[in-house]
């Protein structure tokens, strides 16, 4: 086929182009991913029984705000990585900022503690549950976000996959925070972060295979 024929063929596709549709699809994927993560958390793990008392603790809100801020930054990156020709700008700093803040809080909380106290702050009582649950609760958002990404055109598929994974991890960690009894900033800055990085790494590995166009 000659290129001129191809051009005529392409020009005969007159179906209207929806420029906003993909934003709506991202919105549905986020809502669905968060809803399913909350549902899985309630059904499999349960809300923490003392939630009414916990909401009065500042650390409860820090524990929610950290993954929420991480997810918001990952979403900003994803919206740029999903389409050709957009620079990442300062979104990398936006992703690093919540991590730096929680590490700062963690460093302050370790000041003047004994070795035994420090070990308690780092490991908590539920580190392994956190490390397993956060990636698991991220599965629905991960699948839904990859579904939307497949309808778009990421030119850096590994990074786009990583951003989608980080976003699903952030959503999941926020849902998990409503179950988790831990309150130490060290715990959150370590295990929550690792839990969110598991889907991000998986997304980076899967992106180049799945997101070809």
């Amino acid at each position: 086929m000659k290129t001129d024929e191809l051009i005529s063929m392409l020009a005969s596709d007159t179906l209207p182009v929806g420029l906003r549709g993909w934003r709506r699809r991202f919105g549905w994927a986020l809502a669905g991913g968060l809803g399913l993560a909350l549902m899985l958390m309630v059904l499999l793990l349960g809300l923490r029984p003392d939630i009414a008392a916990a909401v009065t603790l500042p650390m409860f809100w820090v524990k929610l705000a950290f993954p929420a801020a991480f997810a918001a930054a990952a979403l900003m990156m994803l919206l740029r990585l999903a389409r050709p020709g957009l620079a990442l700008g300062y979104t990398g700093f936006a992703l690093a900022a919540p991590v730096l803040v929680i590490w700062l809080l963690a460093a302050l909380s370790l000041q003047g503690t004994s070795a035994a106290e420090r070990s308690m702050l780092v490991w908590g009582e539920t580190w392994s549950a956190c490390l397993i649950s956060v990636p698991l609760l991220a599965v629905p958002a991960f699948v839904l976000l990859f579904g939307v990404l497949k309808t778009l055109a990421p030119v850096r598929p590994a990074l786009a996959g990583a951003a989608a994974g980080a976003l699903s991890g952030g959503i999941s960690a926020a849902a998990y925070a409503l179950h988790c009894p831990e309150l130490a900033p060290v715990f959150i800055g370590l295990w929550y972060l690792l839990g969110m990085l598991v889907p991000a790494a998986l997304g980076a590995a899967m992106g180049p295979r799945i997101l070809r166009w």
Partner: peptide, 28 residues
């Protein structure tokens, strides 16, 4: 050239009219 034309056509919904065209085409 033909493959890039097909890609531009099939992905034209990813072009944001507020964005310059050059970087979009060049990235594709």
């Amino acid at each position: 050239v033909q493959e890039a034309l097909l890609a531009v056509h099939n992905q034209r919904h990813t072009y944001d009219p507020a964005q310059p065209l050059t970087p979009w085409v060049q990235a594709i």
